[in-house]
């Protein structure tokens, strides 16, 4: 065993942080694994929940936006238009909520054991990726049903997924850290999730937004993520609105970097206030 020397001082518990984060990677796997196991352990239909929820929302949105409001669908079947957007949106909503509540949910661990606290929200986000993968299978099934074959753009999908992960992580870190200090933020989480569903182009194509408002609309970072998913999955005439994409990417990066910064700043006092 190597003897590493550790110095604990008022302001510099930081030096080993990133090295520690690497050392605790197994804890990270185990926490994610625990959450996946626990999530489906006492449910009667288990994993099927990951399929039923997006499926029902898709049906509702297709009915409301496609059939009643008769919105355009960029030349693809409306269910696929909705489902391709629902994939990243559901991921974001779940990951954001789970990460935001993750510290409070693991309060006991945080006040009794040392580990880099970033592990907790990070593993919460990763768990939600499992749901995305399951829903992704459903999307493949839907596309087969409609006889759609994605073109080369599908290989860019991981990039947009990464974009969604960073977005969920950044916002999740902010809320998680704030939530420890001010419990008011747990009321903000369901609000953001609900409100976001309406202001993001999930039930409709963002192409219906007038061009002069498009950039403003892109201030919602999820617009870029969802457009990216559609662009990669649907192919065909679907065009990517690059300024909006760039704006979304920049915003997400700023949120994520400041999120990590704020989280690190507050991290030291988590055990004292939680």
């Amino acid at each position: 065993m190597q003897t590493d020397e550790l110095i604990i001082e008022a302001d510099s518990t930081e030096r080993h942080y990133w090295k520690d984060l690497w050392r605790y990677r197994e804890l990270f796997y185990f926490l994610a694994w625990r959450d996946v196991l626990v999530r489906y352990k006492q449910t009667a239909i288990g994993i099927a929940w990951a399929l039923i929820r997006p499926l029902l929302i898709t049906v509702a949105f297709v009915f409301v936006f496609g059939k009643l409001a008769k919105l355009p669908s960029d030349g693809v079947p409306y269910p696929i238009l909705v489902f391709a957007a629902l994939l990243p949106w559901q991921f974001f909503a779940n990951a954001f909520a789970e990460a935001g509540n993750s510290l409070i949910a693991n309060a006991n661990m945080i006040s009794k054991v040392y580990f880099p606290r970033l592990v907790v929200p990070a593993s919460a986000v990763i768990v939600c990726l499992v749901d995305v993968l399951i829903s992704g299978v459903l999307l493949i099934g839907l596309m087969l049903w409609y006889g759609m074959v994605p073109d080369w753009r599908i290989v860019t999908l991981p990039l947009f997924l990464a974009h969604a992960v960073v977005a969920a992580m950044g916002t999740g870190l902010w809320i998680a850290a704030l939530n420890v200090q001010y419990r008011d933020f747990r009321y903000i989480i369901p609000f953001v999730v609900q409100f976001g569903l309406y202001v993001s182009p999930v039930g409709f194509s963002s192409a219906i937004v007038p061009d002069q408002w498009r950039l403003l609309y892109s201030l919602n970072p999820m617009v870029g993520v969802i457009d990216g998913f559609r662009w990669a999955i649907l192919g065909g005439e679907n065009h990517l609105y690059w300024p909006g994409m760039a704006l979304s990417l920049a915003l997400v990066l700023v949120i994520a970097i400041t999120g990590v910064w704020y989280f690190r700043k507050m991290e030291k006092s988590f055990a004292d206030v939680i």
């Binding site: 065993m1 003897t3 590493d4 020397e5 550790l6 110095i7 604990i8 001082e9 008022a10 302001d11 518990t13 625990r34 196991l37 626990v38 352990k41 006492q42 693991n106 006991n108 661990m109 945080i110 006040s111 009794k112 054991v113 040392y114 030291k268 006092s269 055990a271 004292d272």
Partner: peptide, 30 residues
């Protein structure tokens, strides 16, 4: 290292494990 000191300094040589509670992180469903 669960909480940081307000002032002062600690030097530790060696891997530390702490057991402040029995069963931290146990999940009843597992």
């Amino acid at each position: 290292r669960i909480t940081a000191p307000t002032s002062g300094r600690i030097k530790i040589r060696g891997r530390v494990s702490s057991l402040l509670e029995v069963g931290t992180g146990f999940h009843p469903e597992l």
